[in-house]
Amino acid sequence: MSDEENGVAAESVVDQLRDRIASGALAPGAPLRDVALAEEFGVSRNTLREAVRLLVHEGLAVHQLYKGATVKRLSVADVHDIYAARRALELRAVEHSFSASQEALDALDIPVSAAERSAAADQWDAAGTHSLDFHRAIVRLLGSERLDSFFRTAVAQLRLAFAEAPHEPEFQSHWVERDRELCDLLRTGRRTQAAAALTHYLDDSERMIVDLVRAAQQHHV
């Protein structure tokens, strides 16, 4: 396999592992064993190691002495950094949502409705995934593939913090109704109200996740 082909294969593996992290299928501390994963994805161990190196670069994995690579556990500083990015991108997207097509605005309803159905079925892990999909859809209103790619990684990092919640329904139930409110405000052009709602949403979410991460750090000491 050429270097170019190896790079393409590694990117494909990274995409799949990132999606698993973003969906909650790979939790913080989960081992990334190169032999098993290389066999699963049908790639060489060198390709798999390159994929893991890229995950480390994205802040989704870490190398630990004598343990190999594992999915990262976020620090409080990581959480603050993620939320700085969320405010910059999501609030900007709300401000500029007037330039989005009605089709793009209506598409916001798809993940929100999916989250509501998941919550009604007590499928809270799925509800969390759909909520993150909704916020990715907000950022897509900016119409930038580069920002979409950046935010996809930020969302996967954020999911690592969600995984620290000791009781998933209690944590996720806070956001389904608020996502619906925000979605409806955006779809009907009430940008000022949407910006205010999103600001409160992000403030409350950051405080809650910081508390989760701090509690998890004490538990893992």
Rank of each mutant, 00 (worst) to 15 (best):
D15W: 12
Q16M: 14
Q16Y: 12
L17I: 15
D19A: 12
A25S: 07
A25Y: 05
P31D: 06
A36K: 11
L37D: 05
E40S: 13
G42Y: 01
G42N: 08
N46P: 09
L48E: 12
A51L: 06
G59P: 06
V62L: 15
L74S: 02
A77D: 08
A77Y: 02
V79R: 01
H80G: 05
D81A: 10
I82V: 14
E90V: 13
Q102A: 14
E103K: 15
A104M: 15
L105Y: 09
L105W: 08
I110R: 15
S113F: 06
A119C: 10
A120G: 14
A121T: 03
D122S: 15
D125I: 10
A127E: 08
T129H: 15
F134M: 03
Q157P: 08
R159F: 15
A165I: 00
E168W: 01
P169Q: 09
F171L: 03
H174N: 10
E177A: 12
E181M: 10
R187Q: 03
A194C: 10
T199Q: 12
H200G: 07
S205K: 01
S205C: 02
R207H: 11
M208N: 01
M208R: 03
V213L: 09
V213K: 00
V213A: 05
A215D: 10
A216C: 05
V221G: 12
V221N: 06
